[in-house]
Amino acid sequence: VRQEELAAARAALHDLMTGKRVATVQKDGRRVEFTATSVSDLKKYIAELEVQTGM
């Protein structure tokens, strides 16, 4: 499950970095929206997932 969450989070980051205004991911069973202003929060979430998956 964590691998899927990590892939979704990375895709969301890619979307935001390429101009999409809002990206949505499932985080702990709930839907979370990230915007360009919350990229740093999304990067932290990705880092947490990488630690949890041993990457």
Score class of each variant (00 low, 15 high):
1 V>M: 12
1 V>S: 14
1 V>P: 14
1 V>L: 14
1 V>E: 12
2 R>P: 14
2 R>T: 10
3 Q>S: 12
3 Q>D: 10
3 Q>C: 13
3 Q>T: 12
4 E>N: 12
4 E>G: 13
4 E>K: 13
5 E>N: 07
5 E>C: 10
6 L>N: 01
6 L>V: 04
6 L>K: 01
6 L>I: 05
7 A>M: 12
7 A>S: 09
7 A>R: 13
7 A>P: 03
7 A>I: 11
7 A>C: 10
8 A>P: 01
8 A>C: 14
8 A>D: 07
8 A>M: 13
9 A>V: 03
9 A>H: 03
9 A>K: 01
9 A>F: 06
9 A>M: 07
10 R>Q: 06
10 R>F: 05
10 R>C: 08
10 R>Y: 13
11 A>Q: 13
11 A>K: 14
11 A>L: 11
11 A>W: 04
12 A>W: 02
12 A>N: 01
12 A>V: 03
12 A>H: 01
13 L>N: 00
13 L>F: 05
13 L>Q: 01
13 L>S: 00
13 L>D: 00
13 L>A: 01
14 H>K: 08
14 H>A: 11
14 H>N: 12
14 H>T: 07
14 H>C: 12
14 H>I: 10
14 H>W: 09
15 D>F: 05
15 D>G: 05
15 D>W: 05
15 D>I: 06
15 D>L: 13
15 D>V: 05
15 D>P: 00
16 L>F: 02
16 L>D: 00
16 L>Y: 01
17 M>D: 04
17 M>K: 05
17 M>A: 05
17 M>E: 08
17 M>G: 03
18 T>C: 12
18 T>F: 07
18 T>K: 10
19 G>C: 05
19 G>F: 02
19 G>T: 03
19 G>M: 02
19 G>A: 03
20 K>V: 09
20 K>P: 02
20 K>L: 08
20 K>R: 09
20 K>M: 11
21 R>Y: 06
21 R>H: 11
21 R>F: 08
21 R>M: 14
21 R>I: 13
21 R>D: 12
22 V>M: 09
22 V>Y: 07
22 V>E: 06
22 V>L: 08
22 V>G: 04
22 V>S: 13
22 V>R: 06
22 V>F: 09
22 V>W: 06
23 A>Y: 01
23 A>I: 08
23 A>W: 01
23 A>Q: 03
23 A>D: 02
23 A>G: 05
24 T>K: 05
24 T>Y: 15
24 T>I: 15
24 T>Q: 08
25 V>E: 02
25 V>L: 11
25 V>Q: 02
25 V>W: 02
25 V>P: 01
26 Q>R: 08
26 Q>A: 07
26 Q>T: 14
27 K>A: 06
27 K>N: 04
27 K>L: 13
28 D>E: 08
28 D>V: 03
28 D>P: 03
28 D>N: 10
29 G>T: 03
29 G>Q: 04
29 G>W: 01
29 G>I: 01
29 G>Y: 02
30 R>K: 15
30 R>E: 11
30 R>T: 09
30 R>A: 08
30 R>S: 08
31 R>Q: 13
31 R>H: 09
31 R>C: 12
31 R>D: 10
31 R>G: 07
31 R>Y: 14
32 V>T: 07
32 V>R: 05
32 V>Y: 09
33 E>H: 07
33 E>A: 05
34 F>A: 01
34 F>Y: 15
34 F>R: 01
34 F>Q: 01
34 F>N: 01
34 F>L: 04
34 F>W: 05
35 T>Q: 05
35 T>D: 10
35 T>P: 04
35 T>R: 04
35 T>K: 04
35 T>Y: 11
35 T>I: 04
36 A>G: 06
36 A>T: 10
36 A>W: 15
36 A>Y: 13
36 A>F: 12
36 A>C: 14
37 T>G: 12
37 T>C: 11
37 T>W: 06
37 T>S: 14
37 T>F: 08
37 T>A: 15
38 S>L: 06
38 S>V: 04
38 S>C: 09
39 V>M: 15
39 V>I: 15
39 V>E: 04
39 V>L: 15
39 V>G: 02
40 S>I: 10
40 S>P: 11
40 S>K: 10
40 S>F: 05
40 S>A: 13
41 D>M: 10
41 D>C: 11
41 D>W: 08
41 D>S: 08
41 D>Y: 07
41 D>P: 02
41 D>E: 14
42 L>S: 00
42 L>V: 02
42 L>R: 00
43 K>F: 10
43 K>S: 05
43 K>A: 08
43 K>M: 14
43 K>N: 05
44 K>N: 09
44 K>D: 09
44 K>F: 06
45 Y>D: 00
45 Y>K: 02
45 Y>F: 07
45 Y>P: 00
45 Y>W: 15
46 I>W: 01
46 I>T: 00
46 I>A: 01
46 I>Y: 00
46 I>S: 00
46 I>L: 04
46 I>E: 00
46 I>C: 02
47 A>V: 07
47 A>N: 08
47 A>R: 13
47 A>T: 08
48 E>W: 15
48 E>P: 00
49 L>R: 02
49 L>W: 03
49 L>I: 05
49 L>E: 00
49 L>A: 02
50 E>C: 05
50 E>T: 06
50 E>P: 00
51 V>K: 13
51 V>R: 15
51 V>D: 12
51 V>T: 12
51 V>H: 14
51 V>I: 13
52 Q>H: 10
52 Q>S: 11
52 Q>L: 15
52 Q>I: 14
52 Q>C: 07
52 Q>V: 11
52 Q>T: 10
52 Q>D: 10
53 T>Y: 15
53 T>A: 15
53 T>R: 07
53 T>W: 14
53 T>P: 07
53 T>I: 15
53 T>S: 13
54 G>K: 08
54 G>T: 06
54 G>C: 11
55 M>D: 11
55 M>Q: 14
55 M>V: 14
